[in-house]
Design a protein around this nucleic acid. Structure first.
Length: 425
RNA sequence: GUGGGUGUAGCUCAGCUGGUCAGAGUGCCGGGUUGUGGCCCCGGAGGUCGAGGGUUCGAACCCCUUCACUCACCCCA
């Protein structure tokens, strides 16, 4: 009787061989483009002390309240699987004093994040992000540069039909005032709000802005707007960011209802959406977080960054036929002596840099030819015990069907020469 | 955490109002060529119809329970 299958954890998926080429391609272009903008890769652990996220993301956020994978280590210390990367990167940045090495530090990291939410399209409990952070630059130009890099990357990666939305969330000076104004306004219409929003009124009033309930939407449309409450500095910053985006000919929409979920964002916030994604239509989001580094015990330097959801990005890519790794040559062996010969020859060809395959199962030639065909082999070398005796093997060009005899004694050299000239074409 | 949808062969799915309903396509293996692939033809392996219980002479189909997956809400990448 079969044992029960042990399955993967809910919301956590395997990335199968048929999918890895897409992932690798995205990662490779990210690395190439980010380096071009002066960013360097940092790799940080996926586990951190729980306090790091409590302090950075905010105690009252959903992530910290109910979505983190937190457990007690054997020595009683509370650890958490990272729900996002920014806090981790800042921790490393502070811990290793990266600030003192250069005035502006540009970093990126790629890897898995963990959030215990109910899975749905574009949302998983383990998901992967490409995460970018700039420390030590508080200028509007750096906001715009980061946004430009994001859009350029998505473009090169091949994502189509994107929309960029930006907003300003104000700073510690102007946001509290705005927040009070919103609460006061919404208080008047409390009974008209959906139950969720009534709850948000006390927990996180700004979140009412991106409620999708129609009734709430009408109320919100006349609510105070953050952009009217910005302090002179924030307003100026926002205007200049927009100016730089215009200079780069980037299209964007100002969405004054956009609120970011994490507590630490200040000033510029942005989001990239795609219609291909279903309900979870945001494939990248980010913003400025001046003050966060200091909050985590580092120097008081500014920060901007963004995260890209890899799974979401990949579903936005047009379907490309995965070209499975092609095989340069398949060695079809028949008979014991030939098999031994094929084993050595295949090893030698691989050592010379070719993709060589063979089959040790002793199947019929027909069946081996089928395998060679499946592998899209450019050539097949046929060698049986009769060839071993005659001292010649048969090389078949799978596309042209041309066959030629090759002397066994000079076989490796002859094959390498043929493969070198043919395979490159 | 809350709601809807779906669970039949490795994969994609048919299966009418309970009565040859255990199927198709594809993939896999083999044969048609004693040692030559793709196309075509033929054959084969593979499923306790998600699991458990109930109704019935009889259940893939009806009822209950449960699990899984999925979409949506919440929230976010």
């Amino acid at each position: 009787m079969p044992m029960d299958k042990i399955t993967a954890v809910k919301g956590i998926k395997d990335i199968l061989p048929s999918e890895t080429p897409g992932w690798q391609k995205v990662e490779t272009t990210a690395r190439a483009i980010f380096e071009r903008f002066g960013f360097h890769e940092i790799r940080v652990p996926i586990m951190e002390k729980t306090a790091l996220f409590q302090r950075s993301i905010g105690e009252a956020t959903d992530i910290v309240e109910k979505e983190m994978y937190t457990f007690r280590d054997r020595d009683e210390e509370l650890l958490t699987l990272r729900p996002e990367a920014t806090a981790c990167v800042i921790r490393a940045y502070v811990e290793h004093n990266l600030a003192s090495a250069e005035p502006v530090t540009k970093l990126f990291t790629i890897g898995p994040m963990f959030r215990r939410e109910r899975p749905q399209k574009g949302r998983y409990r383990q998901f992967h992000q490409i995460d970018v952070e700039v420390f030590g630059d508080d200028t509007p130009a750096s906001d715009a540069e980061v946004i430009f890099m994001l859009m350029h990357f998505l473009d090169v990666a091949g994502v189509e039909n994107l929309s960029l939305e930006i907003n300003s969330l104000g700073c510690k000076d102007c946001r509290p005032g705005f927040s009070r104004a919103v609460v006061a306004y919404l208080g008047q219409f409390q009974d008209g709000l959906c139950p969720d929003c009534q709850r948000r009124l006390t927990t996180n009033p700004l979140r009412v802005f991106d409620c999708k309930v129609e009734a709430c939407g009408r109320i919100i449309s006349d609510a105070p707007r953050i952009l009217d409450h910005l302090c002179p500095e924030c307003l100026d910053h926002f205007d200049r960011v927009k100016g730089f985006l215009d200079d780069l000919n980037l299209e964007y929409a100002v969405n004054s209802n956009m609120v970011r979920g994490l507590d630490y964002y200040t000033k510029t916030a942005f989001e990239v959406k795609s219609g291909k994604l279903g309900a979870q239509n945001s494939l990248a989001g980010g913003g400025r977080y001046d003050g966060l580094v200091a909050l985590l015990g580092g120097p008081d330097v500014a920060g901007v960054g963004f995260g890209i959801g890899m799974e979401r990005l990949l579903t936005c890519l047009p379907d490309t036929e995965e070209n499975v790794g092609k095989t340069d040559i398949f060695v079809a062996a028949l008979g014991t002596r030939a098999l031994k010969f094929a084993f050595k020859l295949t090893g030698l060809l691989r050592r010379s840099g070719f993709t060589a395959a063979t089959d040790y199962s002793g199947k019929s030639l027909k069946s081996q030819m089928k395998r060679a065909d499946k592998m899209q082999s450019a050539f097949t070398l046929i060698i049986g015990d009769s060839e071993m005796d005659s001292g010649r093997a048969v090389l078949r060009n799978m596309k042209t069907k041309n066959q030629q005899d090759l002397l066994l004694e000079s076989l490796p050299e002859a094959l390498i020469n043929i493969l070198k000239s043919e395979v490159i074409l």
